[in-house]
């Protein structure tokens, strides 16, 4: 088996007395799309933030292309970030900048493109996510939720990264717009030949965008397998989660 693109081993993280990640082990294959499933507070977002370098884990290793990211210098970490794209749950667009500057932010910040050429590049990338070039002149506050997600996607792919992260890409969208965004994600990831990592609790979305899937529960990976098999994995936890059943091994922590 070839070397995984991203390898997590024994990843642990606590916030005060609360243990959020309790030894996460996960391999993500190069050029494939991995979906990490899990309920609210299960540690999905923290895992993603650890890989992105936004949170330092308390223990464990994160390897990308065989290199332990904890040992990277600041310059090497920046170089790694240059190859990473990220779509945030709420878009996280810069509201002081017009859409075209948001889309080409990384290219402009690294002076990989002149400001004049950036408008054309933004129009090109906006077209890839189904938006007209005229949207480039609007500000994020003038866009609908679905359009903000598309602009966020355009920003994530504008620098042609080889790893793309998606944080709950369909949350807050109607089912049709959710399917549209999923379709765009699949198209973009295939076109770039990128490795994708998505976190979601939307099962339809997970099946549409994932090649592989992993389930995280109480800070541990409890199952990995093919995304297509979700709902009939034979793992009681995953099947309960996929079917959205109240009864099963996963018990919601409700105060009675």
């Amino acid at each position: 088996m070839s070397e995984p693109k991203i390898r997590l081993r024994g990843l642990a993280k606590s916030f005060g007395p609360k243990l959020v990640l309790d030894g996460v082990d996960l391999d993500i294959r190069a050029g494939h799309s991995m979906v990490i499933l899990g309920g609210s507070g299960s540690g999905k977002s923290v895992t993603l933030k650890c890989i992105l370098g936004l949170i330092a884990p308390d223990a464990g290793t994160i390897e990308i292309d065989g290199r332990d990211v904890a040992t990277l210098s600041r310059a090497d970490r920046r170089a790694l970030n240059d190859r990473i794209g990220m779509l945030f749950q709420n878009g996280a667009l810069f509201d002081s900048l017009p859409v075209w500057e948001n889309v080409c932010f990384k290219l402009l910040a690294q002076k990989r493109i002149a400001r004049g050429a950036a408008r054309d590049r933004a129009a090109e990338v906006l077209a890839q996510v189904g938006l007209a070039a005229s949207v480039g002149d609007l500000y994020p506050s003038e866009l609908s939720g679905g359009m903000q997600k598309r602009v966020g996607l355009a920003r994530a792919i504008a620098a042609e990264p080889d790893i793309i992260f998606f944080d709950e890409p369909t949350t807050g969208l109607d089912p049709i717009m959710g399917a549209v965004i999923d379709g765009l994600i699949v198209d973009c990831v295939r076109r770039l030949g990128a490795t994708a990592v998505s976190i979601t609790h939307d099962m339809a979305s997970a099946r549409r965008i994932g090649d592989d899937a992993a389930m995280i529960h109480k800070g541990r990976i409890v199952w990995t397998g093919a995304a297509a098999s979700l709902g009939q994995t034979g793992n009681a936890m995953v099947d309960q989660f996929a079917r959205g059943e109240r009864e099963g091994p996963i018990e919601m922590e409700l105060r009675k």
Partner: peptide, 25 residues
Amino acid sequence: AEIGTMRVTDQIDALHTLSTDPVKY
């Protein structure tokens, strides 16, 4: 208010992922 709003709406994390040092920027 401006930077605080950027913090709570993940815009500062977005700067990190866009290879931009938030303090410098």
